[in-house]
């Protein structure tokens, strides 16, 4: 956890109401996919929590941090008016993030089980299945990149309402073995919802998206991690505004989450 000032490099619309915000600053705490930053927006009281979409180091001392956000209210609309050169106050390195190790462990276990049972484990060939709905694609992009770097074979399913909402399809492509885009109206990719395209025995699942999508994905898999959204006060565990009930007791989604393991989740 760190507080740092960033400079806006780019703030460009990439889909209907969706912006890609590229920042320069100290992103040394943003190493894990699924963690988030809390952005102070001039004129608004509480910060805006946004998941990290990408981070990479540059030759100079500054890192480059990529965030994606959708304009859903006054705060994000004000953000959309930020021009390059603007300074932003961020709290970085918030939340637990995804554990990419778990995909590897799960694949190993599945292979071992198949060996013992002396049968093929075809679905365990894939190390991970990433399922994103809408803006949920943003943290999964960084995860796909990290899994790719570790040699994990990754399938990705992204769901959107319509063509105008599709994000990160092109960017995600190089890092996954298969990429399925589903739109509710069929205007891009396959017509349908993400769960229509989840295989029968899916590998380890990483999901991020709206609550009904998370629940539907949960019902179609046996193991994985789910990133939840909640209104937050502070973003670092002080206010207890974003508490949820889990099998391990009450958790702060900002600090103990936003990612919960499948077995912890209570719907």
């Amino acid at each position: 956890m760190k507080q740092a000032y960033f400079t806006v490099l780019e703030n460009t619309p990439v889909a209907r109401g969706v912006y890609r915000l590229v920042l320069a600053g100290d992103a040394s705490d943003c190493t894990r996919a699924g963690t988030f930053v809390n952005v102070k927006v001039e004129g608004f009281y509480l910060r805006r929590p946004l998941s990290v979409c990408d981070v990479y180091s540059r030759e100079e001392e500054n890192d480059t941090l990529v965030l994606m956000y959708k304009t859903v209210g006054g705060g994000t609309e004000a953000m959309s008016r930020l021009s390059s050169g603007a300074r932003l106050d961020l709290l970085t390195g918030l939340g637990n993030g995804f554990e990419s190790d778990n995909a590897l462990k799960y694949a190993d276990n599945a292979r071992n089980r198949a060996l013992i049972a002396k049968k093929d484990a075809p679905d365990a060939q894939d190390g991970a299945l990433l399922v994103g709905g809408g803006m949920g694609a943003a943290p999964l992009y960084m995860l796909a990149k990290q899994l790719y770097a570790r040699g994990v074979k990754t399938s990705v399913i992204l769901g959107f309402n319509t063509l105008a909402d599709v994000i990160l399809q092109r960017e995600m492509q190089p890092f996954c073995s298969s990429l399925t885009v589903a739109t509710a109206d069929g205007s891009s990719g396959n017509k349908g919802i993400v769960t229509d395209f989840i295989p029968k025995n899916p590998p380890y699942v990483y999901a991020c998206g709206p609550l009904p999508m998370l629940k539907a994905v949960y019902d179609r898999c046996t193991d994985g991690e789910f990133s939840f959204e909640e209104r937050m006060g502070c973003g670092f565990g002080a206010c207890m505004g974003c508490t949820c009930k889990t099998a391990d007791g009450a958790k702060q989604l900002c600090k103990d989450g936003p990612v919960l393991k499948r077995e912890e989740i209570i719907w």
Binding site: Y45, G233, M240, G241, C242, T243, C244, A250
Partner: peptide, 23 residues
């Protein structure tokens, strides 16, 4: 105590509402 259901926080001009409920 678990406290109240979420949402428990809401933004306001120059302030915030909370209904954490003594978690």
């Amino acid at each position: 105590r678990f406290g109240n259901q979420t949402p428990r926080v809401a933004e306001c001009p120059a302030g915030m509402l909370n209904s954490v409920g003594l978690q």
